[in-house]
Amino acid sequence: MQTRHPDIRDWGVDADRRNRPGVPREVEPRKVRAAWWDQPEQQTGDVDPARPTYKPRTPVFGTAQPAQGLSGRIRQAAYKIPEYRTGHWLALLFADRVNAIEWRLGAGRGQAHAEPRYEREAAGARKGKAASLLLPVGSALASLLVVQRFAANRGKRSMRRVERERRMHAEHRGDAMPLGWRMQAPEATIGVVAREERVYQH
């Protein structure tokens, strides 16, 4: 195998890792370029960006297209779901599709007057229309699945909490918790309980 390439201009000029700006990955802390502040001033203004409930406003933020209307309400609800849950992102995608419909109906154009200049060419336009139908339907189905799953999880969590508390009280009283004990499940969560049985019945 050829390992040197005299035919390629300046081959290997950054072969020494000390010549690579990203090595090491983290450098000794220092300010970037001409930053002169220690803590940037807080941006003010009328717009309070929709954001996760646990996150404060960052020192600067974008003010373009503030959340409003029905899609804005969905976005506010989405931001109450933690980011590590799929439902957060699917709800945002769903809000995007609702927002697109609002836009077509004319809402939100007060600050930005769109003037369509090009429609996609015929094949592209057909694909775009098909996709614009597929995406909201897919998102809605996915959101339903997630909500269903989320509801099941909530049921499972509340059952586990009750179970844990009963075990703690029992231990506090000195009662032994019989093997195979389980709380009676409501009918809607039979599947969940079946899994819990496997935990306690061995």
Partner: peptide, 12 residues
């Protein structure tokens, strides 16, 4: 504007 659709228009 929506998936597969952008336009050029006036903004502040």
């Amino acid at each position: 504007e929506r998936p597969y659709k952008v336009t050029v228009g006036n903004k502040p």
